[in-house]
Design a binder for these strands. Structure first.
Lengths: 303, 303
DNA sequence: ATGCCCGTGAAGTATTGCTTCACGCTCACA
DNA sequence: TGTGAGCGTGAAGCAATACTTCACGGGCAT
């Protein structure tokens, strides 16, 4: 394969009409240019330049090669320009994986700010379950995923780097006409007699309830197993029971329910930013990373 | 500037979907490919490949670069193909410099055979004076020139390589009704009383006459100075005198003159092939060189 | 559990691309 | 007719680097 750097040299020499001028232009010594062109001629199997008293002139083969060289150099520049566009966030795609509750609470803010800040970047969001998120992350389908965990079961995936974004405290959801509905705060020990709505399929919030009640000295009576927090709120609103939920999950609550804070003794969900720990990360990925950190910080301070 | 060899590697890897396969295809070890791609990623400032359990997959930037790489490689192949065409004499130009008398005698044969043998090559012939031929040769306008000289004044130009092609003996031209017209051969000593037609402007054939006559013991009487051999023959044909000429110059003689051989004591013109002694010569030039040698040899044996 | 395939890393080696220094040549100007 | 500037070239030496070998770790399939 012909050496492209030598071809570039040839093109410069043909353009300037002189090895010395080309050398100067490209930051080499004249000797280096002379030697490299000599080698190119050997590679080509024929002379490429007519050496004259004043400078040089391309032979037929030289002119031909110089023409090809110019095309190749243009392409190379285009490739570098493309990389610069990616690096300069004027181009590129970032795929983000999220889970449903964060999708409804945090994502609108994230998307709108991302659109505003990086109008030229494409943003793909996929919302799915925890384990599939990890899979998408591992095979590179998404560059960043938002994950969550609780203190007793910290997420730990090899080669995945985690950044805690925010603590999502557990809150109590009661019907608007519940005896505690007027309060803004309560504790688990006040709730020993309640019936409980939980999420079905061994959802982690069931374990939160389990642990919190045990700590408060009672065992919860389960009245209903809901498929999502929307359904849980509906059950709560008609007085079937009360429920625990991460605060982000009930950010826009059903009008017939009230949300009460609980003490810090009730375990809080942690929301994390996850990405594969490659030493190199795509610029768009870094941009999204920073934006998520920022949005989370703001969300944490003024929920 | 991005390294094109690394880009080629990237393209191969993206095509095959595996570093090992690409390495095998290109004759490298897998380790080399891995290292080079790592470097390319650093150059690019972003990851180009997603490493997966089975092989690799390009990132956005990787796919982009691989696309550019494919274009560049196509161009490189085209450049090499062009060189091969030049080398394979399926393309190219050869410029040949000649002087008038050889042009009329030897050239028709040369041109027709060249056309037949290398139908894809362009042939440029320039006919001019000796000193301009050397100049054209030196500045590369022609790759090969035909020159001539006499024994007492051998051509010797620095950096010009010479190959004697043929000896062009001096002949005597007489009118068809001249006393010697019936003979095929004579000597200078038979010609002491003749009047002579010579070429004007100190043409070398005048010196041939001078030296030959002196050797034969007489001084020639000059009757006319002609501008070319055509004119000289015309003067000879009407009996104004006799003339000396290189045999090639009177290859198709005027019908009213006769051509007689002279002894080897009359100096012969030598015809030479001249080219700049570059270590590398264009393939078309080499082809023409060989063809001239062949044609000259045949011409010499059966004139 | 075992072997195979794939990518990766460290170390060593050979190539090679470039610089420095010196030379020869040609042209222009004194 | 020198004489210096500009240009290309060559030998020698140095430093970068592209490759190989050898060894390792992880995932997938038998």
């Amino acid at each position: 394969m012909l050496d492209v750097r030598r071809l570039a040299l040839l093109a410069a020499v043909v353009d300037t009409g002189s090895m010395t001028a080309a050398a100067e232009q490209l930051g080499y010594t004249a000797s280096a240019v002379s030697q490299q062109l000599r080698r190119l001629e050997v590679e080509a199997g024929q002379p490429l330049l007519h050496r004259q008293a004043r400078g040089v002139r391309p032979t037929e083969a030289g002119a031909l090669l110089a023409g090809h060289a110019r095309h190749i150099l243009r392409r190379l520049n285009a490739a570098e320009a493309d990389l610069a566009e990616l690096a300069g966030l004027r181009r590129g795609t970032i795929a983000l994986g999220v889970f449903p509750t964060v999708a409804s609470a945090l994502l609108p803010q994230v998307v709108s700010r991302f659109r505003r800040q990086y109008p030229d970047l494409r943003l793909d969001v996929r919302s799915t379950r925890f384990d599939e998120l990890v899979e998408l992350l591992e095979n590179g389908t998404v560059g960043i995923a938002l994950l969550w965990d609780y203190a007793w079961n910290r997420v730990d995936v090899p080669d995945i780097s985690l950044t805690p974004l925010l603590d999502d405290p557990t809150v109590l959801v009661v019907a608007a006409d519940h005896r505690l509905a007027r309060k803004r705060f309560t504790t688990m020990s006040e709730l020993a007699g309640e019936e409980w709505i939980v999420r079905a399929h061994d959802h982690p919030v069931a374990e939160v309830l389990e642990r919190s009640c045990r700590a408060a000295g009672f065992t919860p009576k389960i009245a209903f197993q809901a498929n999502d927090y929307q359904e849980a709120q509906a059950m709560v609103s008609v007085g079937l029971g009360v429920a625990l939920a991460p605060r982000t999950a009930v950010r826009n609550p059903n009008p017939d329910v009230r949300v009460l804070a609980l003490g810090t003794d009730v375990p809080a969900r942690r929301i994390l930013l996850a990405h594969r720990q490659d030493r190199l990360r795509a610029p768009a990925e870094l941009a999204m990373h920073q934006l998520l950190v920022d949005v989370a910080r703001e969300y944490q301070t003024k929920p």
